[in-house]
Nucleic acid binder design. Structure first.
Lengths: 159, 159
DNA sequence: CCGTATCCACAACGATACTG
DNA sequence: CAGTATCGTTGTGGATACGG
């Protein structure tokens, strides 16, 4: 890409209004600490109200509010179930939308592991297929692993 | 992995205290909307104080506070520079620590694109090498693309 | 252009008590 | 077990005015 093209891209980028930014929209849904940590817990397999509250370290009031919002937004579903001989209970299960947040959670955890852990990262994700550790990475659709300096940020071309 | 092992892992997981969670630590640094959006802008090439404030849509007071925190945390550096004939100005540049946040930002954007955009995602990242779009994904160190249901979450084994 | 200072509003959260 | 209700505190951010 020559200089003229590059300057054109840059001009487009500056004209682009941040309100349509999907990061900002994502933050409208999972922009609070408690929401992120609840989603983390859900991925760890937590399904019950008081487990969320206890393990995330938030009060029941906050847990109730956040869980309701996350259900409303479609990241979790609240489903009744009953074990034999027990009364009906409810559990919060991940939807596809909630499950698809895992790359973001993984990437965040990795970054925290790299720069903010005192010692060794306390938790690893492993691939059930081969047992190898799992990590988030950035790749292009051609399959090339992409180094961060090799990424161009540009507004989607108009058609 | 058999059932006994799996239950062992699960027991470990329940005993694991969330305070050491590096996601929580990451949120101590970039847990606010403005911090995330400022880091997004930095990746888009924004370097100047008032550009951050304007493009993120926050007041100068908030921009000043957040930029100071991000510099203190090591995600940005504030550097003096001068163009010929101009007085000295300052610019905020990404550090390695800040740059390494890109996978998390990319993953978040992707998730927003998938579930929260009205139409087409407004922005794409492309690989400078081949021009193909770039996306965040989860892989194991063996190089296998990992489907989300195939991920095991487990505490790091003690040594 | 690059901020600082002040004041105010509201949202997020913790603590505590209480209910089906 | 799964919440609701209420209160107080802090954090995040907007508005406005001002200073190097």
């Amino acid at each position: 890409m020559d200089t003229v093209q590059l300057e054109g891209k840059l001009a487009d980028l500056r004209a682009w209004t941040p309100t349509q930014c999907t990061i900002a929209r994502a933050l409208d849904v999972v922009g609070t600490r408690s929401a992120i940590l609840i989603m983390r817990e859900a991925h760890y397999g937590t399904t019950r109200f008081d487990e969320f509250a206890r393990r995330v370290g938030i009060t029941e009031a906050v847990a109730a509010a956040r869980l309701r919002e996350l259900v409303d937004a479609g990241l979790l579903v609240k489903e009744p179930y009953r074990e034999p001989g027990q009364r009906t209970r409810h559990e919060y299960q991940l939807t596809d939308m909630g499950r698809d947040l895992l790359p973001a959670l993984t990437a965040l955890m990795q970054w925290g592991d790299a720069y903010l852990a005192d010692g060794k990262p306390p938790l690893v994700l492993t691939h059930a297929g081969c047992g190898a550790p799992v990590h988030a990475e950035v790749r292009c659709t051609e399959g090339h692993a992409v180094d961060l300096p090799d990424i161009l940020v540009a507004p989607r071309p108009r058609r």
